[in-house]
Design a binder for these strands. Structure first.
Ligand SMILES: [Zn+2]
Ligand SMILES: [Zn+2]
Ligand SMILES: [Zn+2]
Length: 908
DNA sequence: AAAGTTCCTGCCATGATTC
DNA sequence: GAATCATGGCAGGAACTTT
């Protein structure tokens, strides 16, 4: 299996040809001039660094949007980045007037950055646009861009890119600044490496230099730092603090804390650990206070970890600790820097006692290998380079925190998983191809698209991975896509003091929003309305909501993005409610309520409406904090909810929840009432959400531009209170109709049968979550499956339910990802030859089990065929049971494996 | 087998907390 | 204010499922 993948990869690589090397090395060059095919970038200002002026301003703005991405790109840590957060921020739009674009917020890490050039374009314009300089803002305004895109065929583009890459590669020598820095990765960076230049690592220069480079074109030549525009950010301007430069690897960091964390990589750890539980601390005081409490409690670890002989270098909890001192661990002394105590080593360990409170239940042990601390999960023995990775991982065993999907019953052990999963519900497309502007929901989709339509060799852009599967940014990795801001902004971190909050997330009502830009909104779209709407928004609060409308082929595409979100964060837990209006973060978007009306604006306090352009990608999301009177009338309950206290709300919601079902049901039948109609089949057919179909059509030319005639114009997601979310595709006509009346409200109706089915499904899930896995998937797949998209999809929030579960034991009823409850197999990535051996061993051991599974599968198929008539439920049930069976086998097997292999493992 | 989805993990940004 | 801690996003390949 994996082979398969490898295969694929291999193929791709092959295609690329230079692939690997090329890839690894750089690419860069892109300057983009690409005129050619690459999107053009417009503008210049940025680059020019110039803008000194604004810098300050920039900050202020939140920048949210858009521009940020650019800034970041440049910023790259390496660059200077000042440490202050603010600095980071980027540029706001204001700063760049032009810019951007995309409203990508800082979050966005988009990469594209092309900034580079001074010449001009920095912003990527969509291919369509081609012309340069496009101000998105203008776009919003309705400007249409042109589509010049066609001029270059995709192949050409690829070609160009390729050439550039090659060139870059040659030049590369210098460039890599990033490389050195490495990681920064993130996003934004332009990755294009282009820029960047820090020639090498210089430490400083780096930082400093941010001089905007001139627009360099291509090359990165720009000064080392490249930060194109100082103006972007003040920060940029600021000279990097020397302290932020890693003395070991010369990497530059934007913040002191980042550097601190980074330094841990270079030094081993020194630890101040608790005598009782061996927990490590950096601060003595903390240790002391901890010990005081630890003595008392000292709970024994509930589940004693397996005892494993200590191997060399291994630190076993207490032993390690006690002995403690870091130095003993070996780590301590890593060349370089000793200095601070290292922290984190918790040598918790296994066998012995541990303090529960601290890390919690997770228990792990540490081994020091070659001066490096490696953290092992005592449950599955996976190894981690960082404690944070281990902690994160530990939740898959402990489920101390649960991250339930806001739209369905699934629960994830990692917030990230949930985030990714929810994309399927929201339809958000954040990965935008810079060549054709088409946006995709997942990275995978994007890559697939680029490979297929633009001939992009993934190898060129990919980063390296660590032995353990971790991400290692490639130095010059090019990012040929833009990562649009998340529709729901990041949720505020929970307060530590209220640890549990997180565990249960509530769905937040908050909102969401945002959208993705797709490039393609169907032309027919009633764009005017949208435009006006957007305009209004913009006008109202331009800064906050940058809306962009892309125009395609002369038409506008709307891809407005409103970042409203800025704050819409999904908060987990109670925070949500608070966030409703203003989230903690200040940025509450203000919505111009008045204007909005036009098309789609439904506003509830929390409720939000999201329009996604279905077919293509553009999407518009309107979110309003307040409900308008109309809305209120219609849904008084919602209104109330908004006001009620959280608790009340929850209770209320629960009650309403059921009602809602009915209501929505009615809606579905009566769709007209809402005006949000269910998309008709044909509409859906027209749009394929995913790339494939769509892309094929669009890409070459104006990508999105073509509107798909009959296709749905957009997809709308409506949240009614916290209770439900309804997604529907709407056609132009629908929009028209929509106008006001419709809103009149859907009153309660009954759920459609399908919905009812779903509901049953849900219940079923609750009863037996594990078995429901499959079911959940089916449901999800419906959504994902283009064919099924036409159907109305409703997602109900079960926040209340979830909470209850969380609080108590109901958790078991939640659906959990398949992976989660299997013992992890890890291993494959382990490091070194030993790892491979182990891996092989593991695989071998798995064979029998897999074989059994396969047999079961086949059996299932047969049965399915035979029992075709039987209810789906029943079939599923059978399947599940079988699966479980197989799972059990697997578990046993795994255990065995561990038992046998642990012994063999020797220090790494 | 291919296509698609989910899991995984090193690294980093960033908010919260503690010193 | 700085250092530390916690959380979560990201890349992109591995692992796994579905077609
Ligand atoms: Zn584990
Ligand atoms: Zn879900
Ligand atoms: Zn494309």
């Amino acid at each position: 299996m994996k082979h398969r993948n490898k295969h694929m990869r291999g193929d791709r690589m092959g295609e690329g040809t230079e692939e690997a090397d090329g890839a690894k090395t750089t690419r860069i060059s892109l300057s983009f001039p690409l005129s050619a095919g690459l999107p053009s970038f417009s503008a210049q200002k940025h680059c020019s660094s110039s803008h000194p002026t604004s810098s300050t301003n920039v900050h202020d703005r939140d920048g949210s949007d858009g521009t940020a991405w650019m800034g970041e790109a440049f910023r790259d840590k390496q660059l200077s980045k000042t440490s202050s957060k603010t600095d980071r921020l980027p540029c706001t739009s204001s700063s760049f007037p032009v810019d951007l674009t995309a409203p990508v917020s800082k979050n966005c890490k988009s990469s594209l950055s092309f900034s580079v050039d001074g010449s001009g374009s920095r912003y990527p314009t969509s291919p369509l646009q081609h012309s340069n300089k496009i101000d998105y803002s203008k776009e919003t305004a309705g400007v249409s861009l042109n589509n010049g895109y066609k001029e270059h065929s995709t192949t050409e583009t690829a070609h160009i890119l390729f050439n550039l890459s090659a060139r870059a590669y040659q030049d590369k020598g210098m460039k890599d600044p990033e490389s050195s820095k490495g990681k920064k990765r993130k996003a934004n960076s332009l990755h294009v490496e282009l820029s960047l230049p820090l020639p090498s690592i210089n430490p400083h220069s780096s930082s400093s230099t941010p001089p905007p480079s001139s627009p360099s074109s291509l090359s990165l030549t720009s000064s080392p730092l490249t930060i194109p525009t100082p103006s972007f950010h003040d920060s940029f301007r600021a000279v990097p603090k020397p302290e932020l430069l890693c003395g070991v690897c010369h990497r530059l960091f934007s913040t002191a804390s980042s550097l601190t964390v980074h330094m841990r990589l270079h030094r081993g750890g020194r630890v101040l650990s608790c005598r009782h539980c061996s927990k490590a601390f950096i601060h003595n005081k903390r240790l002391q206070s901890h010990e005081a409490t630890c003595k008392q409690g000292l709970p024994a670890f509930p589940v004693p970890p397996k005892e494993e002989p200590l191997e060399e270098g291994e630190v076993e909890g207490e032993r390690a600790d006690e002995a403690a001192e870091p130095e003993q661990l070996g780590q301590g002394t890593r060349p370089g820097r000793p200095i601070k105590k290292v922290r984190d080593l918790h040598a918790r360990h296994a066998g012995t006692l541990t303090c529960r409170d601290d890390l919690g239940e997770e228990d792990h042990f540490v081994k020091v290998v070659d001066g490096h601390i490696i953290y092992f999960c005592s449950v599955c023995e996976r190894s981690y380079m960082t404690l944070s990775s281990l902690k994160r991982h530990s939740n898959v065993h402990s489920w101390r925190r649960k991250y339930p999907c806001h739209y369905c019953d699934k629960v994830f052990a990692l917030a990230e998983y949930r985030t990714k999963h929810e994309v399927w519900h929201t339809g958000e497309r954040r990965y935008q191809c810079i060549f054709c502007w088409e946006a995709f929901p997942t990275y995978y989709n994007l890559k697939t698209h680029q490979k297929a339509f633009h001939g992009i060799n993934p190898g060129l852009i990919s980063s390296e991975k660590t032995a353990n599967g971790g991400y290692k940014q490639k130095v010059n990795a090019l990012k040929l896509y833009r990562l649009l801001p998340m529709r729901s902004l990041k949720r505020p971190y929970k307060t530590y003091s209220q640890p549990m909050a997180d565990g249960l997330l509530s769905s937040d009502s908050s909102v969401t929003l945002p959208l993705s830009i797709d490039s393609s909104l169907p032309q027919p779209l009633d764009t005017k309305k949208l435009e006006s709407f957007l305009k209004d928004l913009q006008t109202t609060e331009p800064e906050r909501f940058p809306i962009r409308v892309g125009v395609e082929q002369g038409k506008k595409l709307a891809s407005p993005q409103t970042d409203m979100a800025v704050e819409a964060r999904e908060t987990e837990g109670s925070d949500l409610w608070q966030s409703g209006s203003n989230n903690g973060k200040s940025k509450t978007p203000k919505c111009p309520e008045e204007n909005v009306s036009s098309v789609i604006a439904f506003a509830h306090s929390k409720p939000s409406v999201i329009m996604h352009s279905a077919a293509v990608s553009s999407s518009v999301i309107v979110h309003r904090n307040k409900m308008d009177s109309e809305e209120r009338k219609r849904s008084p309950e919602n209104h109330l909810m908004a006001k009620t206290s959280q608790k009340q709300i929850k209770k209320h919601s629960q009650r309403v929840h059921t009602e809602t079902y009915r209501d929505w049901d009615a809606v579905s039948e009566d769709t007209e009432a809402l005006k949000i109609r269910q998309p008709t089949e044909k509409l859906h057919k027209g749009r394929k959400v995913h790339n494939k179909t769509e892309s094929s059509k669009t890409i070459p030319l104006a990508v999105g531009s073509e509107v798909k005639g009959s296709g749905p114009l957009c997809q709308i997601t409506v949240r009614i209170g916290e209770e439900a979310i309804v997604k529907r595709s709407i056609s132009e006509t629908d929009l028209r109709r929509d106008k006001s009346p419709t809103r009149s409200k859907p009153k309660k109706s009954h759920l459609s049968q399908e919905d009812q089915r779903e509901q049953r499904h849900t219940n079923h899930h609750q009863r037996k979550h594990r078995n429901s896995n499959q079911e959940g998937k089916e449901r999800e797949s419906k959504w994902k499956n283009p064919k099924l998209k036409g159907k109305v999809r409703k997602y109900f929030f079960r926040q209340e339910v979830r909470e209850d579960r969380n609080d108590h034991d109901v958790e078991d009823n939640l659906w959990r990802p398949y992976y989660s409850y299997k013992p992890k197999r890890k291993a494959l990535h382990m490091q070194g030859a030993k790892a491979w051996k182990r891996k092989l061993h593991y695989k071998r051991s798995l064979r029998p089990m897999r074989r059994a599974e396969r047999l079961m599968k086949n059996l299932n198929k047969e049965i399915d065929g035979e029992e075709a008539d039987e209810g789906e439920d029943r079939r599923q049930k059978v399947k599940k049971e079988r699966k479980e069976l197989s799972y059990n086998q697997f578990s046993k097997h795994s255990i065995l494996y561990h038992q046998t292999t642990m012994v063999r493992r020797s220090g790494f």
